[in-house]
């Protein structure tokens, strides 16, 4: 298992379009990936569960992956979150 924390920096958070893009990115990896905020966990490949966690600007979330490409997945998604602008 590999995990990293990242701050959500875009104004709309992981909702709507940025959330959709995030899920698409997560699906590029074969590992099981979770987004964790406080007590809440979401499957990074499910927009529905991700929306319910409610990742908004300024939140610190942990991205955690288990699987053959876990390091690439986490690093890739952390970098992706940092580039979100909307």
């Amino acid at each position: 298992m590999y995990a990293q924390e990242v701050e959500i920096v875009n104004p709309t958070g992981l909702h709507t379009r940025p959330g959709n893009a995030f899920v698409k990115k997560a699906k590029e990896f074969t590992s099981t990936i979770n987004v964790i905020k406080g007590e809440k966990r979401a499957n990074a490949k499910s927009l529905l569960t991700l929306m319910k966690v409610g990742c908004s600007m300024g939140d610190h979330v942990t991205i955690e992956a288990v699987g053959p490409d876990e390091v690439d997945a986490v690093d890739g998604l952390v970098a992706f979150v940092a580039t979100l602008k909307d």
């Binding site: 709507t16 379009r17 959330g19 959709n20 899920v23 499910s46 927009l47 529905l48 569960t49």
Partner: peptide, 16 residues
């Protein structure tokens, strides 16, 4: 269009 791309993603959501 982005809104409906989100809808399509939810339609295909694996947890759902």
């Amino acid at each position: 269009a982005g809104v409906f791309e989100g809808h399509a993603e939810i339609l295909m959501d694996e947890e759902l």
